[in-house]
Structure formats: structure tokens, C-alpha cells
Amino acid sequence: MTPEPDARQLNAFIDGELDLAGQLAMESRLAHDAGLRAQVESLHSLRRAVTGHADYHAAPAALRDHIQALGASSQLAALRRSGGKAALQRWFAWRPLLSSLGAVALLAIVFNLTLLQPGRDGRLEQEVIASHVRATLTQHLVDVASSDHHTVKPWLSSRLDFSPPVPELGIPGSAFLGGRVDYLDGRPVAALVYRQGEHVVNSFVWPGAGADSGISVSTQRGFQIAHWTRDGMKHWVISDVNRDEFMAIVRELALSDVRR
């Protein structure tokens, strides 16, 4: 029997710090373990509550000067790696600095470094890669196989707590394969699956709070990845197509939001 993941492993999963094999194994367990999903969602909720409502205090200029003078770059790197305890002890050892500049400002820096690193987008990026790789390797690309969005959209809507947009691409060489229900960001999401030539394209969609954001594009592990937010919906797209084809797909998907 596979042992239950401990708190360290769960927190590493939430922070996107597991390797790809560990990420895939944890996601596989989440799909079949309601209790584990509840623990993960609780941790996601705690992170959202802290990052969304905690006060932020800018560091005084004098503190920044002291940090630079003391060669704090190594201290900050250690703080990011350790996630907290040992690095906190080193910071609190600077008692003269704490007394002169105030503990609140210093704690604000520690708080932001330990809780906000790595960023939410970085964690989501790793989840998106793991989900794409898992679906591709297992050949479980779709739950509902159809090239007709009038078939796929109601199927997904009946199994999710929202109605996802289901665009069809008007790009030469592209085909809409269907959709499936996947799990990202601590919740079920819609995964729309396309084929561009010989390459699979996964487009993940789910509701999310926050203002609209422009398209952000990156390359990780040989995959092209793009994400944006529009009209209360988060979009993440991933594929191993070349950059030009990928950008054409992303533009088409983003324009479909505007045309809706």
C-alpha cells in the first residue's frame, strides 16, 4: 500500500516543488482520494486567504541599504530555499537591526518571501505541464470525443460548476478532438483538446477572480505555454508545436473570447 503523503509532501505539491514524477503521482492520487483532495483544497484556500488579505508593508530605504551592505543576497537565497525556519533564525539574529528599524518591516519581507515564492503562476505552470504529459502518455486525451462544440459544451457544463467556452479553431491543419474534466489549481477544470498536425494542444479553462490580464507566454521542458484571464475565466494553453503555430493557436483562442 502506498503510504499517505505527509505535510512536507503536500506543501511541496502546493508550492510546485515536486519533480514531474512526484507531481504526476500526487495528481493521480487526488483523482481517487476525496480526503486527500480536501486536504489540498484546504491548503489552497489558506494560501489564497493569506495572499489575498494579508497586509503588505514596504521595506524602508534604510533597511534595504543595510541588507545590501551586509551581503543579504545569500541570506535571501537561503530563505527562499529553506521555506522558513533556519532562515528566520538567521534574520532574527540581527537584533541590533531589528531594534533600530522595527520588526514589522522585516517580518513583512520574510512573510512575502516564504509564502509568495514560488509564485502562483509558477505552480500552475507545473500543474499544467504535468496534466498535459499525463494525458498524452496515457492516451486519455478526452472524456467526450467530438469535433462539434455543441456536443462538448453541454457535456462539460453538466459535470462542472460552470459553462466553459468551447471554441473551434479556424487554423489550417487543426482539428478539435473533444474535451475532458481535469484538475488544476485545486479544483475541476475544463480541458479542451485540439490537434495541430501531429501535435496535441490542451486548453484549460476555469473561473477565477481577478482583473483581466494580457497573454503571457513561456517555454518550459520543450513545451510552449500561454495563459491569460478574461471576463472572469482563466485560460492556460500548452503544446509542443513550434512557436509560430502555437502563437497562431493562442491568438485564435483569445479572439474567440472577444467574439463571444
Rank of each mutant, 00 (worst) to 15 (best):
D143R: 09
G197T: 11
E127F: 00
T114E: 14
E198N: 14
A211K: 09
L46D: 10
A254V: 05
Y56L: 13
V205T: 08
V201P: 00
G173R: 07
V40T: 06
A190E: 04
L101S: 02
V201I: 10
L98I: 08
S147D: 15
S146F: 04
H199W: 03
S216Y: 12
A34H: 05
L98F: 11
Q220D: 08
N112G: 13
L97F: 07
L106V: 15
S157P: 06
G232D: 03
D240E: 10
R221L: 15
S100C: 09
A25M: 03
A59D: 01
Q75V: 15
E27T: 05
V166T: 13
S239T: 01
D15N: 09
H140V: 02
L63I: 12
S146H: 05
V200H: 07
S99W: 14
M247P: 01
G71E: 03
D231Q: 12
V181S: 05
S216K: 11
E27K: 13
N11V: 07
A130M: 03
R134S: 14
G179N: 05
L184H: 00
A34P: 04
S45I: 12
G102P: 05
R260L: 13
I14H: 06
S73T: 11
G232K: 00
H235L: 08
R134V: 01
A72V: 03
A54M: 10
T151V: 15
L156Q: 07
F13M: 04
Q39W: 01
G22M: 06
A7H: 09
F92R: 14
L30A: 01
P3C: 02
Y183K: 01
Q139V: 06
A191F: 01
N242D: 15
G214Y: 06
A78C: 12
F204S: 06
Q220E: 12
A211S: 07
R180D: 05
R29F: 04
H53I: 04
L177N: 06
W228Q: 03
H227D: 08
V258Q: 10
V40H: 06
H149V: 13
T136H: 06
R81L: 13
A77F: 09
D15Q: 09
L177V: 09
H227W: 14
M1Y: 15
A190R: 07
A62Q: 12
A145L: 08
P154F: 02
L18K: 03
A105S: 10
V200P: 03
G16Y: 01
W91D: 02
K153I: 06
H44G: 04
A135D: 11
L253P: 02
Q117Y: 15
S158W: 08
W94R: 10
P96C: 03
L30M: 05
L141K: 03
A175G: 09
E41K: 11
Q220S: 14
M1R: 09
A105Y: 12
H227F: 11
F223L: 09
L76S: 00
G83S: 04
H32D: 13
H199C: 08
G83K: 04
S218I: 02
G222I: 00
A191H: 05
E4S: 10
D15R: 13
G119L: 10
H132K: 05
L160T: 00
L113M: 15
V152Y: 05
P3H: 07
N202F: 11
E4N: 08
A78S: 14
H57D: 11
H53W: 14
V142E: 04
G71H: 03
Q75P: 02
I215P: 00
H53N: 13
F162V: 04
Q75H: 10
V189I: 14
